[in-house]
Simulated scan of single mutants.
Amino acid sequence: MTHDVRGLLSPSPAELAPGDDSAVITSVETYALAVPLIRTLSDATAQLKAWTVPVVEIRTADGRVGTGISGVHCGAELLTQVIDDYYAPALLGTPSEDILGTWKRLYWLPTHWIGRSGPVHMALSMVDIALWDLAAQRAGLPLWRLLGGTPDPIETYNTDGGWLNLSVDELARDLGSLVDRGWRRVKVKVGKADWREDAARVRAARRAVGPDITLMCDANQRWDFSTAMRMLPVLAEVGMDWFEEPVHADDITAHRRLQAASPVDIAAGESLYSYHAFANFLAAEALRVVQVDVTRVGGVTEWMQVAQHAAAGGLRVVPHAGDMMQVHQHLAGTFLSETAPLLEFIPWTRDAFVDRTVVVDGYAERPQAPGASTAIAAAARERWQIKGIGATAAPR
């Protein structure tokens, strides 16, 4: 259902920041792709056969198209409906260059009261990414260069070999193959009903990759505090680099207690949706690896705020890749930090984009085309677009 909210949400011309008439937004289109996986994969919370990519395309009077994306297990229609029914009417006729002003206007729409996180905020991220994509195109620069990043390749760690539905033997083979292909950092999923199985898996993972490969693990929030505490000695024994989402994402106290007791760094962030949520975790000293995701917080604008805050406190910023690295390859290494940038690599949606990510010997090469690398390939849309999701809004 589409609601006519233009009169309620559209600002008057006097309220808008002045800008280039050619950069005025003329249409907003949404849709979603279901990109099939080569094999069924599971973590402690979901079984995946496809990865869904909600998309917004924002067109401006000069003919440019800015593309914003997200990444979800399910519920793509929730994100696109927020854009179609609430954000699109507030965007039409406004200057696309006013990125921060637009962010604030959309954030404080009536939808603020029902969604300061989740689909409403993720929809804001899609719009914000699209506006940054337009800004980089207009500047004739890849987004990382517009943001002041260096051209150096960025090291990646690989998540695509340690899935929970793999047997111990399959796990060992998959992780070993990633190392053979050049990755020096790999991650294994945990979160079995019996923590002893997890202990056996991480020990097998260490044997498979040897002593010199960096190993991380991810429980996807499925453990309680007691189980996580039982696993700490095992994780220290195998030299685990970090322990990701060990308990419920909103339980700051449990994260703080684990980090205080653990020689292994606690990592979290894929289930935190705002600068304020991250600020609370950082103030509590509840984690040391900040996994802020541009598709979960409010886009590039809020991602930069979180990353700069965390790095200023000496913490590692390692993005969670809900975007499958398409946008994060531009964001990594664009802020002051004492640690080298690191990206999560998952290859599921590379064929969906005009500019595919390029990773050589475990290092992501910086994209060179102007924009944020988010433009969807026409063939991918033809093959994988989900029927019945999305709409197009244009001036009447």
Rank of each mutant, 00 (worst) to 15 (best):
R288S: 14
L287A: 01
F278G: 04
A284S: 15
H276E: 15
V289N: 00
V290C: 12
E285L: 03
F281D: 08
D293W: 03
A284Q: 10
W303T: 07
V300Y: 01
T295P: 09
A286I: 11
M304R: 09
T295N: 14
V300T: 10
A279F: 03
H276F: 14
R296K: 14
A284N: 15
T301M: 09
T295W: 12
V289Q: 01
A286S: 14
V290Q: 02
Q305M: 10
N280Y: 07
V290F: 09
V290D: 09
V297P: 10
W303H: 05
A279C: 04
D293K: 06
N280E: 13
V294H: 00
A279M: 05
A279Q: 12
R288K: 11
L282S: 11
A284E: 15
A277L: 09
A277K: 10
W303M: 07
F278Q: 13
G299C: 05
E302T: 04
E285I: 01
L287M: 11
W303G: 06
V289A: 03
H276I: 08
F281H: 12
L287F: 06
V290L: 07
M304V: 02
G299P: 11
A283V: 03
Q305C: 07
W303E: 05
H276M: 12
V297I: 13
W303A: 05
V289T: 01
R296C: 05
E302A: 02
M304E: 02
D293T: 03
A286R: 15
T295H: 14
N280T: 06
F278N: 08
V289S: 03
W303Y: 14
T295G: 10
E285H: 15
F281V: 05
Q305F: 02
E285Q: 15
V294E: 02
Q305D: 10
M304N: 02
R296N: 06
Q305N: 09
L282M: 14
V292E: 01
T301F: 02
G299K: 09
A283L: 08
R288I: 09
E302V: 08
T301C: 07
D293S: 08
G299A: 08
G299V: 06
